[in-house]
Design a protein around this nucleic acid. Structure first.
Lengths: 270, 270
DNA sequence: ACGTATGTTTCACATTGTGGAATGCTGCGC
DNA sequence: GCGCAGCATTCCACAATGTGAAACATACGT
């Protein structure tokens, strides 16, 4: 009936179908791909393992969802660039998590807040409250936000503060006290890391604040003069003092940051 | 011995290996890929057929070599952009060749000359002298060169002519006679197509000129104000007069040109 | 605590991919 | 003009490889 046609390798074709599905719908779960492509889940798993092993797709640590890897990415849209950072960060954060035993997050700026792009909370042996990718956190009160502000170019910092000041939200009142803010940021630069505001007893932006008992140290991802985002390590504040924790793990955190940055640069250079 | 590891689909992995080989070495022949990847030729053929059917790789009409398709291209370097035009042109030129029975070429600007990027001469039922991709032709004396010059933005035209004038080659002396050149280009615009200079009796740039008995009509690939290149149809000058041929086939040629342009735009828009 | 939705592993089965050898095709040197 | 060399494509016997149903594991909501 149908013309014989040139011989086709079916399993390869299915693999490409999965790739195309991922291009249309980045960050898909296994189930989403199952619905979208109609390929059985075991087969999908094998295909995705294969694609991942070749670096064509990457998995997100936070929830295990799949995305197209840097080697194939097309137009470097803003969204894709953030995903590249997350992709580069994933293996580094994973190692960090294994060595330190406490989880960490990668945050990048997004409008008037910072946003989680990757996290190892699901992988940490100690189960802390789980956070989702895309969750937004305050810029002035969190460690990650302050780490970013302390090291980003002065011009960018002024624009951000200006934006927050005009927003006029209660939690952004620090934007209206430049002297205090500058003192805080100077301290961050002096110590080399940032922590959350003592009055900000946990509770992420957008959620009802509650004392979560957590604390973190955060450092920026510095790429030359620019700052791409920041990463942190989170622990239970009852376990260690900030100073003790920093003495122990700050260097590892900073090493992770520079490794992520150089990895992102490497990918872009290609 | 080796750890079992997650299940991998070998044939898919081999397909990806071929893709990576093509990324490192664009425009590879089957044999080159065979040497490079170590995969047997029959298998390579099946793999490439599969990749081609999914639009991930494309074949060049001129010599059948393979290249990575537009859907996956990464950094849009200048070289890659030219390849995109060639890729978009290939199917259109192939149809044109089947309908008209005479071959055509796609040429794009490259420094102080124009360059063949695709051709159907190998596919034409009438075997004309074969031309290779990358061959360079004169800008002022050929139909394709004149079609480009006649329709490209005035500023770009002036730069090109200036460059040719200072080159001081004998075959570029027309660049030193602006009045005559302008008359010629005005004629091209009036008729809607260009032909080679009557004194330029064949013989491509870089080859010893000889009367090849060929003639062509050429039209530009106009993308808004810009011109991406030009395409032509070639025939034996003894078979038809230029006017008779244009009456018969000019419209088809122009349709092909606009189809190629919109195809390139579509690919870029994605 | 229970049920549901999703991710992962196992396994028996046959579809599917594989490369050596045979066949075409094209260009080159003599 | 002829034969040879190199490359592309087709054929085919063989078994390796991919496949999905079902069982199992894990996370999530209520």
């Amino acid at each position: 009936m149908a013309v014989a046609g040139p011989k086709i390798i079916k399993s390869l074709e299915r693999g490409l179908r999965v790739l195309q599905a991922l291009q249309m719908q980045p960050d898909s779960s296994l189930h989403q791909l199952y619905v979208f492509t109609g390929i059985s889940k075991p087969s999908l798993l094998r295909i995705l393992n294969t694609l991942a092993r070749s670096g064509v797709v990457t998995r997100r640590l936070a929830d295990g969802s799949y995305r197209i890897g840097a080697t194939l990415s097309r137009a470097p849209s803003r969204r894709e660039r953030r995903d590249r950072i997350a992709e580069a960060a994933a293996p580094v954060l994973e190692r960090l998590c294994r060595r330190v035993s406490w989880p960490s997050d990668l945050m990048v700026p997004a409008g008037d807040h910072m946003e989680i792009r990757e996290t190892t909370r699901a992988r940490s042996p100690i189960l802390l409250q789980e956070e989702r990718v895309g969750l937004q956190v305050n810029w002035l009160l969190t460690g990650v936000g302050r780490a970013y502000l302390a090291y980003c170019p002065a011009k960018e910092r002024q624009e951000i503060i200006e934006m927050l000041r005009t927003s006029n939200k209660a939690e952004d009142r620090l934007a209206r006290e430049p002297a205090r803010l500058n003192t805080i940021l100077a301290e961050v630069r002096a110590r080399g890391y940032a922590t959350r505001d003592p009055t900000h007893v946990g509770g992420w932006y957008g959620k009802p604040p509650h004392a979560d008992g957590l604390i973190s140290i955060a450092v920026p991802l510095r790429d030359g003069a620019r700052v791409l985002g920041s990463i942190n390590i989170v622990w239970l504040r009852t376990a260690f003092s900030v100073e003790a924790f920093a003495t122990r793990h700050l260097e590892e955190l900073q090493d992770a940051a520079s490794e992520i940055v150089s990895s992102v640069r490497g990918r872009r250079a290609r």
